[in-house]
């Protein structure tokens, strides 16, 4: 069969590449979590459960809990901001719509590190945000805005917001706004028609938005590293510390394995819910 041959021929390069550099490395993380560390910063011989046991400390539980609530809060705030924005862009006149959308896409692609750095200078004790808040008397001169979990949430909302707006816009664009108008004609207040008609109508976009924010948020590393300080550390910081400070790769692997499982949980949950409900393709089809 020619067709079958061609299919394999064009698929094989990426299949091989991604097997080598995605599938095998991911499996390796789980394997190395059970290997001992050697004193030279490499991976030792034999097998051990000590690394897994070492994860059950109050410190790690605190980090896991913080990672979870920071990610959940970030997702919630992103959603609250993205819903009106996605709605407005979808309802804007054609010419404006494309411009607004480009405005959302540009930060999506511009240097992540630079955008985090921009906030670091804004929140700096000598920076404009602090000065402005001091001028209105909201904070005292000794207050610190940087190195606080709130700073982590703020910067995470900032970097993930475009990811949230795009799927909501994509769903809102397909939504039939005459339904909202009909509801208004029948006496619904604006917020009522938004909550009872619009929100259920774009449900799939909302689920995608939640996934594309919550999953990367769980693995955040740069943002807590640059604006969080010790009180804002997340699991990503712990993984990096095990790699770069103590050169303990098995320990880093064990932490990463926990993160992999944490990332899979919401994906599996959505898949199961979909199986139960109507058959749809939120994950496969609509994520940006």
């Amino acid at each position: 069969m020619r067709r079958r041959q061609t299919e394999w021929l064009v698929s094989l390069p990426t299949l091989a590449w991604l097997t080598l550099f995605v599938v095998i490395p991911t499996l390796l993380v789980f394997v190395i979590a059970f290997r001992p560390a050697n004193p030279y910063g490499g991976i030792g011989r034999g097998w051990t459960l000590d690394t897994i046991r070492a994860l059950a400390t109050p410190n790690y539980l605190l980090i896991a809990w913080r990672t979870l609530w920071i990610s959940l809060l970030t997702t919630a705030i992103c959603l609250l901001l993205a819903l009106p924005a996605g709605y407005t862009i979808a309802r804007a006149p054609e010419r404006w719509r494309n411009r607004l959308l480009l405005c959302v896409i540009i930060p999506f692609w511009t240097s992540f590190l630079v955008r985090v750095f921009a906030w670091r200078s804004l929140l700096h004790p000598e920076g404009p945000v602090k000065k402005a808040l001091e001028a209105i008397g909201l904070v005292g001169p000794e207050a610190t805005l940087l190195y606080h979990p709130a700073a982590v949430v703020l910067v995470m909302v900032y970097t993930f917001l475009p990811f949230t707006i795009l799927p909501i816009y994509a769903a809102a664009e397909k939504f039939d706004f005459r339904l909202v108008e009909a509801a208004r004609d029948l006496g619904a207040r604006p917020f009522q028609s938004f909550r009872k008609i619009f929100l259920p109508g774009i449900r799939r976009g909302v689920v995608t938005a939640v996934l594309v924010v919550f999953i990367p948020a769980l693995g955040s590393y740069i943002i807590p590293d640059l604006v969080g300080g010790p009180s804002g550390e997340m699991i990503g910081n712990k993984i990096a510390q095990r790699v770069f400070s103590d050169r303990n790769l098995p320990h880093a692997s064990a932490l990463s394995a926990v993160l992999v499982l944490a990332v899979l949980a919401p994906l599996v949950a959505v898949l199961v819910l979909q199986r139960k409900g109507k058959k749809s393709d939120i994950i496969m089809g609509e994520a940006p």
Binding site: S11, T14, L15, L18, T19, F21, V22, V23, I24, P25, T26, L28, V29, I32, G42, I43, L211, V212, I215, P216, L218, G219, S220, Y221, G236, I239, A240, V243, L249, A252, S253, S256, L259, V260, V263, L267, M284, A287
Partner: peptide, 26 residues
Amino acid sequence: HYTLIYQPLVVPEILMGISLLMTFVA
């Protein structure tokens, strides 16, 4: 094939970084 290609788009970067590091070291 699609699932494999899709994966790097959703998985947090730090996981890709650490798993590749492990592979190169191993």
